[in-house]
Design a protein around this nucleic acid. Structure first.
Length: 910
RNA sequence: GCCCAGGUGGCGGAAUUGGUAGACGCGCUAGCUUCAGGUGCUAGUGCCCGUACGGGCGUGGAGGUUCGAGUCCUCUCCUGGGCACCA
């Protein structure tokens, strides 16, 4: 009788799997293929418990598919380019390449003990020249296909990272990694023309049946399709070569409510005008600054704080500023109607035409602007019920609401906004002074980064030929090893020789492009590369056709827009360039977005002397101090749990592991407990992190795997608790002990209740199989707990208990593969669990010949009866009326009604 | 502000098409075992009344549909997420 010993068992089975090559994804034409992929990690150097959850989920799917006879591809790699390596280089004096390689080695070493069913032969890192060289080849193909281009553009400049960011990488006006407020700059940059595919990327979302609706919705919102009218408002007096102002609107039906035209401070006409108008130039510059630095927003927040309120509404209001340019335009529907042209800080150059017409009655921003500067407010429609002119709130009903129109130019009287918009576009197109236009919020993907540690963009700048693509035979364009990372800016710009090349076209002296690609490019096609990681072309036609699509993709919901949208674009671009079959333009058949692992935060408050104040005063500052979970011991005190610092207890010679000591210590130092802040996202600064390596060392990989799948549904966050991890370990120990007990049974001893155990086993097989298929891992585990309980109490004979134990091991195998192999071996089974065919639930054990029929009285359950399945209605009624609880309720009377749902339920209505 | 997802015991959470609410785990209570304690085992555990038999209430709140509602409908409150001067 041996004890459960994961430390001894787990490495042994891992070697065994390696020796047998069970995870090697050699194409097997006799089996259906199945490609499982988890989003690959950034090699930060340490695995995170969130990684463990992510990869364990993928592993359950992969192992289950392996057992159901699939040819499984389950690879792993590293998203290895990116800024942290450069930062580390500066901080540690270590080359980014070395830092990255070391981190990869460290993380691989931390991941391998998890026993994941990964084909490690396919492993690669995006910083391998073999990988990024192929990416450069793709870039050249995209360029040739018109999918990439170089052009000047206003870009988001992150002053901390000293590079530009894509729109998707700017969150709340701040860089997604640095958190710095981004500035706007005009730079010549490389773009992928993702906006050309906006419509396709939007409509194809409908076909993604196995994607979460939430992710599809987020993408649809991001693409942001709108239909509207674009029309010219002629200038009364042409100026600076402009005859009129192009305006885009989604509400052409409200054209008669116009009160002014407003231009973005970046509008070309404003820039042209500023030359001759000092006041305008000053005002325009001020407004642009407010865009760039968010100045007025910050000021507003500050003002609010000093006045004691920080309501989001007040801050969000954002003061509207404008200058009257003095120009006037004619209304497109009425040449006699002249309107003023303003420049306004709330008009964006990036959307529409950078010019709007203000309709204060039906737009809150325009109303605020009009009220501030005394511009007219004209109602164009009113509510059917209680029509009233607009005063301090713009009237903006949903476009599907019917409203009453005031003297509408299309002749409408009562109509919805939608109908009015359609009518207005038709009307204006008929008059020839405007056209219906569909627009998208999605803009092109700027991929240029002024950084070292990324994939070089393979083009050359030639004084004679201009921008020339590199020749494919010269790829990969490798990053130079000898770079100076100590100074700010792009080290490739400063490199003495790397830039100097011959022009691929004319052979003259030329300069290499020094921008590198956004790291999201690296992760936009790795899934395709995994199908043939050694190919001399980006993909290999036959193998990519065999393995694509990814059948199940798993990752965090934080990539719902960025990564997944780029990957969808890339798949289409790859297809156009002949690297992916058409069937793979949507590369991920099914997507699962898993929740985070969270943990409570332990915080105390330290009083430290405040040296900035004169000594005479009571000068202390109270600062928060956070504690790692392992520094804290939890103690049950009455009905509440308190956290105590182990180190403090030890200093006072108390044993933190001893409950009585904890009690004594608490009594002696009553107020030294630590605040417990409920579950939050793990964060290093709050120290609420758990180290998977430490947990694996303590309990084994199977316990960690079991735990991260337990309790919470996988799409939701799971709270890591020490008690939960203990419970997982105890359970696995009990399963092992049960297996030992059964192994030690007398094989010939008779037993009782064989049938019941087998029924329970087959029900469990049926239910666990269904649960795994629908990602209900927490439910599957609950059922395995329940079945373990039944087996543990069973008095069945040895043969049946052994069979049940083996079935249990198989069902547990995707979650706790090492333990399952151990049990399998202990009971003398052939081969490995991992390659054994998945058990089948047999119909004869699932069929029931009796049913327990709950009896409700007036809809509330009062009793139940056991009857033969499909028993005749009148027989059931007799039994129901004879039931003690029913008789008591009837008190000799007859029920008003008796509802009988066969084999399901009975309801007696009094 | 707009859009989306959720609110179920002390806690994490179960609950096919409307059909026994609270599976399973944690915690707690009692007992047993070992014992200095933890561990292990057995039983109990939604709330209220009742010694018990039993009864009443109960899935954020208020209404509604139904023989029957966690599930469907209307309104409302709260929490989390996404987007946001997008014209």
């Amino acid at each position: 009788m041996s004890r459960y010993n994961p430390a001894g068992m787990e490495p042994r089975w891992q070697s065994k799997w390696d020796e047998e090559g069970v995870f090697c994804a050699a194409p097997d034409p006799d089996k259906p293929k199945y490609y499982v992929l988890e989003m690959f990690p950034y090699p930060s150097g340490r695995i995170h418990i969130g990684h463990v959850r992510n990869y364990t989920m993928g592993d359950v799917i992969a192992r289950h598919k392996l057992a159901t006879g699939h040819n499984v591809l389950h690879p792993m790699g590293w998203d290895a380019f990116g800024l942290p390596a450069e930062n580390a280089a500066m901080a540690l004096g270590k080359h980014p390449a070395d830092w990255t390689r070391d981190n990869i080695a460290a993380m691989r070493a931390q991941m391998r003990p998890l026993g994941l069913s990964i084909d490690w032969v396919r492993e690669f890192a995006t910083c391998d020249p073999e990988y990024y060289g192929q990416q450069q080849a793709l870039f050249l193909d995209f360029l040739a296909a018109g999918l990439a281009e170089r052009r000047p553009a206003m870009v988001n400049w992150d002053p901390v990272e000293r590079t530009v960011l894509a729109n998707e990488q700017v969150i709340d006006g701040k860089g997604w990694r640095s958190g710095a407020v981004v500035e706007r700059r005009e730079l010549t940059q490389w773009f992928f023309k993702i906006s050309d595919m906006a419509e396709e990327l939007l409509t194809s979302l409908d076909g993604l049946a196995h994607w979460p609706a939430k992710v599809k919705l987020m993408q649809a919102n991001w693409i942001g399709k709108s239909r509207g009218l674009q029309c010219t408002w002629p200038l009364v007096t042409p100026v600076c070569g402009h005859d009129g102002v192009e305006v885009y609107t989604t509400r052409p039906d409200t054209l008669m409510g116009a009160s002014f035209v407003a231009l973005s401070p970046y509008h070309p006409l404003i820039k042209a005008l500023e030359g001759g108008n000092a006041a305008l130039a000053e005002g325009g510059a001020e407004m642009r600054q407010s865009f760039e630095r968010g100045d007025d927003r910050e000021k507003a927040i500050l003002a609010q704080m000093f006045q004691g309120g920080t309501s989001a509404a007040a801050v969000d209001a954002g003061e509207k500023i404008g200058y009257d340019t003095g120009l006037r335009v004619r209304h497109p529907l009425d040449p006699d109607w002249e309107l003023p042209v303003w420049v306004a800080n709330f008009v964006m150059m990036d959307y529409g035409t950078g010019a709007i017409f203000g309709c204060p009655a039906h737009d809150q921003r325009d109303l605020e602007f009009a009220r501030k500067y005394g511009l007219p407010v004209r109602d164009t429609f009113m509510a059917l019920k209680d029509p009233a002119p607009v005063t301090d709130r713009a009237f903006v009903p949903p476009k599907t609401d019917r409203v009453k129109w005031i003297d509408h130019f299309t002749g409408l009287r009562e109509a919805t906004g939608e109908e009015a918009i359609d009518a207005a576009i038709r009307f204006i197109e008929g008059k020839g002074c405007g056209r219906g236009v569909t627009r998208y919020r999605l803009r092109d993907w700027g991929i240029s980064r002024q950084r070292y540690w990324g994939c070089p963009i393979p083009v050359v700048h030639c004084p004679a030929c201009g921008v020339v693509p590199e020749r494919k035979e010269n790829l990969p364009i490798e990053l130079p090893r000898d770079v100076d990372l100590s100074a700010p800016g792009n080290p490739l710009d400063r490199h003495p020789t790397w830039r100097n090349v011959r022009c691929p076209a004319c052979g003259g002296e030329a300069l290499r492009e020094t921008d590198t690609m956004d790291t999201f490019v690296d992760s936009s096609w790795y899934f395709a590369r995994f199908t043939a990681p050694g190919a001399k072309t980006p993909t290999d036609a036959a193998t990519v056709a065999r393995w694509m699509n990814v059948d199940q993709y798993i990752g965090g919901v934080e990539h719902a827009i960025l990564h997944l949208l780029y990957a969808r674009f890339f798949a289409r671009a790859l297809h156009r360039c002949g690297h992916l079959p058409e069937t793979a333009v949507e590369p991920f058949d099914a997507l699962f977005t898993q929740g985070m692992v969270t943990h409570a935060i332990y915080r105390s408050w330290d009083r430290i002397p405040d040296h900035s104040r004169p000594k005479s005063e009571e000068a202390v500052i109270i600062v928060p101090r956070y504690h790692y979970p392992e520094e804290v011991v939890l103690h049950q005190q009455g009905d509440k749990v308190v956290a105590l610092l182990r180190s403090e207890m030890k200093e006072d010679k108390f044993d933190p592991e001893n409950a009585k000591d904890r009690d004594d210590w608490l009594r002696a130092y009553e107020r030294r407990e630590i605040e417990i802040i409920p579950s939050a996202k793990m964060s290093k600064s709050k120290k609420n992190v758990v180290d998977p390596v430490a947990i694996i060392d303590r309990y084994g990989a199977d316990t960690v795997r079991w735990f991260v799948l337990s309790d919470s549904p996988p799409e939701r966050d799971v709270e890591w608790t020490a008690a939960g991890a203990e419970a997982a370990f105890r359970h696995l120990s009990r399963v092992w002990a049960l297996s030992e007990r059964i192994a030690g049974m007398d094989p010939s001893a008779p037993g009782a209740g064989d049938e019941g155990v087998l029924r329970a086993l087959h029900r469990t097989i049926r239910d666990v199989t269904a649960d795994i298929a629908r990602f209900g891992f927490n439910s599957a585990i609950a059922r395995l707990y329940a079945f373990t309980g039944i087996l543990a109490k069973s008095t069945a004979g040895h043969a049946v208990q052994r069979q049940a134990m083996m079935g249990l091991a198989q069902l547990m195998a995707p979650m706790v593969p090492h333990l399952a192999e151990g049990i399998w071996e202990r009971h003398g089974s052939e081969g490995l669990v991992v390659t054994a065919p998945w058990p089948r639930a047999e119909a004869r054990y699932l069929a029931e010949d009796t049913v327990t029929l709950p009896i409700q009285i007036n809809g509330r359950r009062k009793s139940d009866i056991v009857v033969a399945k499909d028993l005749a209605r009148d027989k059931v009624e007799q039994l129901v009326l004879a039931d003690a609880a029913v008789a008591r309720a009837l008190q000799g009377g007859t029920p008003k009604k008796l509802i009988l749902v066969p084999n399901r339920i009975v309801n007696v209505v009094l």
